[in-house]
Design a protein around this nucleic acid. Structure first.
Lengths: 226, 226
DNA sequence: CTCGATTTTGACCGGACGTTGACGCTGCGC
DNA sequence: GCGCAGCGTCAACGTCCGGTCAAAATCGAG
């Protein structure tokens, strides 16, 4: 499982299937249940993120949240609700939720937050941390957050590491600027900013001859290894 | 089916005939019906995209959408409507729509989206994007964005690459100037401009003897391989 | 709060790339 | 054979995109 699965817990048919469709179109593996009890049963190891509606028919949503948190400390929980008072939000976060979205919400905002949580879960080690990432001389240990070129370890800063990991994962293929910005900086706004360029620059400086980051003008970058 | 047909479902006479006219002038095969019931009957295999207005006289538009989706999972559905709240959009996407356009919309935006969907439907059916494209000595890797002739890699600029990819994909068949301008330059304005000619020129210079770009006077170009 | 590490910004530069326009060529209809 | 329209060819130009670097802002540990 490259990306962890998402479980949608929502009893309103229209909203639920809409959410599932949108999330699936983003490439996530999505499961869906319509009650709190079912949620507790369905949140297996393959689930990395739960999108939880609070207005459930059987159990209290916050209670479900607490139990999920108790079972799986590494799970990301995103609460959806119509209640927006400060107290509600505090209660939700206290119950172990990682995030809180008030209905009606904008889809783009939900997706942005889902991306953020998936990324967090991804790199926190819920992912097959031993799934060895490599290309040519480059080896990457996501769990330990370390990278080697041949036998020498690279000294990378956090963002540099994420960028290199993405490029290695897609070695030989073009990775668009848009995608990089989305996955590492969580934004689509790729206007006049030199952030990506600068990081590519420093990465190039730290890589040897055997690994080259090729620029595809107007498109993105591609990691080419000997 | 080179380009999938488009079905316009709209009961307002003025809007409908306007849409049909514009889409036809873009080179699409366009059908038109003015009721939900007729839409369900008219959406045959030759239809790749349905432009669906939600304010229909007989059936509920979302219902039509759901039924279309149930019958043809590969169909692209673009909804037109005056309702623009987030909930409406979620409901629309839930009903199986792929896209959503709020009236009043700009024609250019509609056309851009139609293009995007047609492209998707087009390529989803035939080839996978990571499947290497080839014709004769020419090989093209869309994912890596590289091209080879025999064993030597070609050094192509962005537009040249896209042009060659299109020609290779249609190798042996004529590709009209109109289509090239639409797919690569996203415009139909093929008046007095030497842009295409120049790119064909440079491409010819970079290709060897085994691959020839034949000119079809007044029509377009055809890639002929040994 | 302070300091150092890390990230982001902004200015500047260089060059690749796309486009244009003038001119020459060629096929095709008359 | 003539002329026209469509295409080939080439050099030149303007634009946009990415590379580069230093300085500023932000973050995070202590």
């Amino acid at each position: 499982m490259a990306t962890p699965g998402i479980l949608v817990v929502e009893d309103d048919e229209a909203i639920a299937s809409g959410l599932v469709r949108v999330l699936e179109s983003e490439g996530y593996a999505v499961g869906r249940v319509d009650s709190g009890r079912a949620a507790l049963g369905a949140a297996g190891d393959e689930i990395g993120l739960v999108v939880l509606d609070l207005g459930l028919p059987d159990l209290d949503g916050l209670d479900v949240c607490r139990r999920l948190r108790a079972e799986r400390s590494d799970l990301a929980i995103l609460i959806l609700t119509a209640r927006d008072t400060e107290l509600d939000i505090v209660a939700g976060l206290d119950a172990g939720a990682d995030d809180y979205l008030v209905k009606p919400f904008r889809l783009s905002e939900l997706l942005a937050r889902v991306r953020a949580h998936v990324r967090r879960v991804d790199s926190a080690g819920a992912r097959r941390s031993d799934e060895p990432l490599a290309a040519g001389q480059l080896r990457i240990d996501l769990a330990a957050r370390r990278a080697w070129e041949a036998e020498t370890e690279l000294s990378l800063r956090p963002k540099e590491f994420e960028l290199l990991a993405l490029l290695v994962a897609e070695a030989g293929r073009v990775v668009t600027r848009e995608r990089i910005m989305r996955e590492i900086w969580d934004t689509e706004w790729l206007g006049a900013t030199k952030t990506l360029d600068t990081h590519v620059l420093t990465l190039r400086g730290k890589l040897g001859e055997a690994s080259a980051i090729t620029t595809l003008r107007g498109i993105g970058y591609r990691l080419d290894v000997a």
